[in-house]
């Protein structure tokens, strides 16, 4: 419940904040160049190295961060679900090959892979970044959905569907995927936060969103410049925003899990809980 409230608050702030606090996040103040200001009435969260308003950057940054979190999640969930469902439903050698591929993907240090792809494709555009994060984080979902589908396959209602002559595609679309949906929803909620963390990590490496577009990871990265000393507000603000957002979606995911009556252990063994470790350790 707390998670839901917090998540809604963050989403509202991202949507309407910039409409209420109408200060440009990219306007450079020449008078304050190289001289970050601590929080004040004019700049409630202070200013950065270029004299830009930190509150405004935080609000716009929320939009970017949530955009990355949601869209990359949708890509990963869609791809992972389809992949896992096909693999689980097909069984046999196809399943084997598909799952070995997942193993291979998981055996890469995942973050290392993202850096490699991003550095090598040299894409700092937002869309490309989202695509890369999404396409490199679907494996957990694929495993999860496959496990669900495999266990559902033997259940009575599938047998029944088969008995009345439903084709495999129909069984997959009408029965298997909808029934595997609950754990996917939980995984999706958690993935939003994870993607935000990954994006922050990429910014830290200088592979973030193009300047001067504000993003939380980018703000944190700016604050780490050796030139910015004695300006703790620049380090604390984006960090706390990231932590709060992650907390919101974690709690929300936890709440959903209980509400959807998902056995935690089942989810864990199926592989979703492995991903959070990955992200926690990497981002």
């Amino acid at each position: 419940m707390a998670g839901l409230v917090l998540a809604i608050a963050i989403i509202l702030a991202a949507l309407f904040g910039p409409l209420l606090w109408r200060v440009s996040p990219i306007a450079i103040n020449h008078a304050l160049l190289g001289d970050p200001q601590p929080p004040s009435l004019v700049h409630p969260l202070g200013t950065d190295m270029l004299g830009r308003d930190e509150l405004s950057r935080a609000l716009y940054g929320a939009r970017i961060s949530l955009l990355i979190g949601f869209t990359a999640m949708i890509i990963a969930i869609t791809f992972g679900t389809v992949y896992g469902a096909i693999s689980g439903a097909a069984g046999g050698w196809l399943d084997s090959v598909m799952m070995r591929t997942v193993d291979a993907m998981l055996s890469f240090p995942s973050f290392f892979l993202i850096i490699t792809v991003e550095a090598l494709t040299n894409s700092f555009e937002l869309g490309m970044m989202i695509l890369i994060i999404g396409l490199l984080s679907w494996m957990g979902v694929a495993r999860l959905v496959r496990a669900e589908v495999m266990s559902l396959r033997e259940r009575d209602f599938i047998e029944a569907a088969r008995a009345i002559g439903a084709g495999p595609t129909r069984i997959l679309l009408r029965h298997l995927i909808p029934n595997a949906l609950a754990p996917v929803v939980v995984a999706a909620t958690l993935a939003i936060g994870d993607n935000i963390l990954i994006a922050a990590g990429l910014s830290f490496l200088g592979l973030g969103v193009q300047v001067p577009t504000p993003s939380w990871g980018g703000m944190l990265q700016d604050a780490l410049s050796p030139a910015v000393q004695n300006s703790p507000w620049l380090i604390v603000t984006p960090g706390i925003l990231i932590v709060l957002t992650l907390l919101a979606f974690s709690l929300l995911g936890e709440g959903l899990r209980v509400a959807l009556d998902q056995s935690i252990v089942q989810v864990g063994v199926a592989g979703v809980d492995v991903e959070p470790v990955a992200n926690a350790a990497t981002a």
């Binding site: 936060g193 963390l197 922050a200 990590g201 830290f204 990871g217 944190l220 780490l224 703790p232 380090i235 960090g239 990231i242 932590v243 709060l244 957002t245 992650l246 907390l247 974690s250 709690l251 936890e254 959070p276 926690a280 350790a281 990497t282 981002a283």
Partner: peptide, 22 residues
């Protein structure tokens, strides 16, 4: 403990490192 775990989980690791150093 669960809430604390979520908070710890949500910390960008480099951010936590910098705070600890500070």
């Amino acid at each position: 403990v669960t809430t604390l775990a979520f908070v710890a989980y949500g910390m960008p690791v480099f951010w936590l490192g910098i705070l600890l150093i500070d």
